[in-house]
């Protein structure tokens, strides 16, 4: 399991209002990425068993991590298209849009730093 939130990219990602040690020279506005994922039926059944003994649902944790990475990657791609080299002030949101499906959403401000 890789620890990083985004795929290999030179983009600087922070949820501060700037990049420490660097200066913002250009703003490109809001960038966002989202993905909607549904669960695998088999995983759901296994999770049902897990509901008897409780604890962490590893399959779901991994699924959501992977989806969040996807959302961040889409955001990064959008920022790359704009010519930015950093995304600051990133926020996450999760909502369950339908039974069994969750939307993972990431947004931030694309900037160029020096």
């Amino acid at each position: 399991m890789t620890r990083s939130i985004a795929r290999n990219t030179s983009m600087i990602l922070t949820n501060l209002e700037g990049v420490p040690g660097k200066e913002i020279i250009e703003h490109y506005g809001l960038v966002q990425g989202s993905t909607i994922r549904a669960k695998h039926v088999g995983k759901d059944i296994l999770a049902g068993f897990k509901n008897i003994v409780g604890g962490e649902l590893k399959a779901y944790t991994e699924l959501l991590q992977e989806s969040r990475k996807e959302a961040v990657n889409r955001m990064v791609m959008q920022a790359e298209q704009l010519g930015a080299n950093a995304v600051i002030n990133i926020r996450f949101a999760t909502s369950s849009v339908a039974p069994g499906a969750a939307e993972l959403f990431a947004y931030g401000t694309a900037v160029k730093v020096q």
Binding site: A47, N51, I52, V53, G54, G55, E56, L57, R68
Partner: peptide, 8 residues
């Protein structure tokens, strides 16, 4: 992140 479930 972590997903936790309650037991029966």
């Amino acid at each position: 992140s972590v997903v936790v479930a309650n037991d029966y």
